[in-house]
Design a protein around this nucleic acid. Structure first.
Length: 189
DNA sequence: TTGGGGATCTTCT
DNA sequence: GAAGATCCCCAAC
């Protein structure tokens, strides 16, 4: 079993961290799988929640690295980020898609779907399938219910522009596992 | 296969 | 008052 990531492993800038997390395994209470899609956000980035400085909503992004930043998306979904870089900077990685490996029956029940490809292919879907709730905001990623294991080998990574944003829409800070069938959508050639 | 609308909440203008 | 790091369902092509 590959080693678990600890807070010191998150002392990197957001794009580097986002790429490194492709192939890592995320479990929440034993439910989860392999991360196949991420996006990087940074304080200098106009599309980031942290761009305008700390607020009650985004304070976890300015806390210690190696913790979760959980936010409500479109008033409905809970989305999960990993805080990275140094404390106080406001950098993070959005977990956009996972290949389901563990606790698949639980995910099927939570999602109300049985199609494996649709269980975790999108940030809101990941939140629902892994039971991400706001109580996990600011929670350490190396302590229960979280467990993050480093990638077991090198994976080919594809890069492209981020999804669903209007500012800095051309910045290529979206990362995906090449050839994965569990991406939220394809990458442009 | 593509496109529009609804659900629902926080932040900022 | 509007927009947003989204998803789902239905209608129309």
């Amino acid at each position: 079993m590959p080693r678990r990531l600890k807070p010191a492993d998150f002392l990197r800038d957001a794009p580097e961290m986002a790429r490194l997390l492709i192939g890592a395994v995320l479990l929440v209470d034993g439910v989860g799988g392999r991360i196949v899609e991420t996006e990087a956000y940074d304080r200098e980035d106009p599309a980031s929640h942290s761009h305008s400085g700390p607020t009650p909503r985004n304070q976890a992004m300015f806390g210690p690295p190696g913790r979760a930043y959980v936010y409500r998306s479109y008033g409905i979904h809970w989305c999960l980020n990993f805080v990275c870089r140094e404390e106080g900077h406001g950098a993070g990685v959005l977990i956009r898609a996972i290949e389901p490996l563990a606790g698949v029956a639980t995910m099927i029940e939570r999602r109300g779907l049985h199609e494996p490809r649709l269980l975790c292919s999108g940030p809101g879907r990941v939140g629902q399938a892994l039971a991400i709730v706001h109580a996990l905001n600011g929670h350490r990623l190396d302590q229960r219910p979280f467990a993050v294991h480093a990638a077991d080998r090198d994976y080919d990574v594809v890069v492209g522009p981020r999804i669903g944003i209007t500012k800095a829409a051309d910045v290529p800070w979206r990362f995906g596992m090449a050839g994965s069938k569990f991406l939220s959508r394809g990458f442009p050639k």
